[in-house]
Amino acid sequence: MTVVFERTTGLTEVETHYCPGCTHGIIHRLVAEVLVELDILDDTIGVCPVGCSVLAYKYFNCDMQQAAHGRAPAVATGAKRVHPDKFVFTYQGDGDLASIGTAEIVHAAHRGEKISTIFVNNAIYGMTGGQMAPTTLIGQKATTAPYGRDEETMGMPLRMSEMLATIDGAKFVERVSVDTPANIRKAKRAIKKCFQVQLEGKGFGIVEVLSTCPTNWGLTPVESLKWLKENMIPYYPLGNFKSPEEVE
């Protein structure tokens, strides 16, 4: 018998708590595979956020720190400065990174911290039950925007990658999606490149991953992928905003 597929050693054997159809699982796997492929799993310190991925410390098979809401980049800064030879990454959602933790992510990038951030954007607060995120789209309903997001009173959705790309210390910024197998492969390439930027000591890197939330979007997993493609990608264009080649 030939093995055609197996669990990556970058993840523990703990069963995740994510909802059916949620793409966090795919993103976890991509991160873990890259850690294994770059052979840095045993030299990695991961920092997980508050939000749906709050329990990620149980899933990644490396040293992990659980951070206060939005503070993962600050925690990662502390860990990286103590262990500059270790690989340090944060894994954060849109509430964590784009709302309560904007100061921490902007200034980690601004200092050019040699850390890597995986930013999972699903345009909603998942863990707390579907409240509006800074990345919630115009017209999209959320439990705290029951009539849909309205530009007049709630502002336009925040494009974090574009914003972070303006910061000199951010050396790698790319937005990817995990809605199709092709996009998943592209996402993995971006994550690997982002991690290499840190390993080469070039500075701060971030990969924004457009993700689904079937539960709080009120859609089936398949509908969710379609909704992501039709609604999120037009507002949050995929692509690389910055990479070291371009910087230099």
């Binding site: 502390g78 103590v82 921490e104």
Partner: peptide, 23 residues
């Protein structure tokens, strides 16, 4: 290493990260 953090909130969370890293 000294870092002037962006806020007291960030500073104490850097402390958390560094302490968690054993320093």
């Amino acid at each position: 290493t000294f870092i002037q953090a962006e806020s007291e909130v960030a500073a104490i969370n850097m402390v958390y990260g560094a302490a968690g890293a054993g320093a």
